[in-house]
Simulated scan of single mutants.
Amino acid sequence: MLPHGTGGNRTPIDVVVLTHDQRHVRRKLLHMQHDDVVMLDLKEPVQLAHGDLLLTETGELVEVIAAEEELYEVTPKTPLHLIELAWHLGNRHLQAQIEEGRILILRDHVIRDMLTGLGATVRDVSEPFHPARGAYHGSGHGHDHGHHNHNHG
């Protein structure tokens, strides 16, 4: 795998379009845009980013493209309100793409109701999703989401 921008002037032979969940891989059969299939088999799980390049056994490149996904765009009233909304989403362990002036999350009508109840403007959008990587994204941590006698209330 080559990070975005490190392929030199070589042109990829094909692209693979993946959602954010599909971009977290270790071993996976990838269906490329032009109907070819390639087996990705890495030593450890990675989070592929939009624009990353996969190097085939024959030395050719395949570009990773982030797929458009059905999301909510959450717009706050103020910068402080954005922080408060992000806190509520994080408290629920929701994946979020946090930007200056907005937050993107996967669609969930219950969360939409919560956010509008908190004063946010929420609208449907369809675009690539790049959620922030959590504090435990590194290899070897073994973090699970079992709730060990603590509450989030």
Score class of each variant (00 low, 15 high):
L2I: 14
G5T: 00
G7P: 04
G8C: 03
T11Q: 14
T11F: 12
T11E: 13
T11W: 10
T11C: 02
P12L: 00
P12C: 01
D14C: 07
V15M: 09
V15H: 13
V16I: 06
T19I: 06
H20E: 11
H20G: 00
H20K: 04
D21T: 06
D21I: 03
D21E: 12
D21Q: 14
Q22Y: 00
R23Q: 08
H24Y: 13
R27T: 14
K28I: 00
K28M: 08
K28P: 06
L30P: 05
M32H: 10
M32K: 05
M32L: 14
Q33A: 15
Q33M: 09
H34K: 15
H34I: 04
D35K: 12
D35C: 11
V37M: 10
L40S: 06
L40F: 02
D41M: 09
E44S: 15
P45A: 07
P45T: 10
P45Y: 02
L48C: 00
A49V: 13
H50N: 15
H50D: 15
D52R: 01
L54E: 07
T56G: 03
E57K: 11
T58C: 01
T58R: 14
G59Y: 05
E60F: 01
E60L: 07
V62I: 14
E63S: 11
V64M: 00
A66N: 01
A67V: 05
L71H: 07
L71E: 12
Y72M: 08
Y72V: 04
E73F: 03
T75K: 15
K77G: 15
K77Q: 15
P79W: 14
L80I: 15
L82I: 09
I83A: 12
E84P: 03
E84V: 13
L85D: 03
L85W: 03
L85M: 08
A86H: 12
H88W: 13
H88T: 15
L89T: 11
N91P: 02
L94H: 02
Q97R: 07
E99R: 13
E99C: 12
E99M: 12
I103C: 03
L104T: 04
L104F: 15
L106S: 14
L106N: 04
R107I: 10
D108Y: 09
H109C: 08
I111E: 11
R112N: 13
M114K: 13
L115Q: 08
G117R: 02
G119Q: 09
G119V: 02
A120W: 09
D124H: 12
V125Q: 05
S126Y: 02
P128I: 07
P128V: 03
F129N: 00
F129S: 02
H130C: 02
P131C: 05
A132R: 11
R133V: 10
R133E: 10
G134T: 15
A135M: 04
Y136M: 03
H137L: 02
H137W: 12
G138E: 13
S139H: 11
S139T: 14
S139R: 06
S139V: 14
S139N: 11
H141R: 12
H141E: 05
G142K: 06
G142Y: 06
H143P: 00
D144S: 13
H150M: 09
H150I: 06
G153M: 11
G153Y: 11
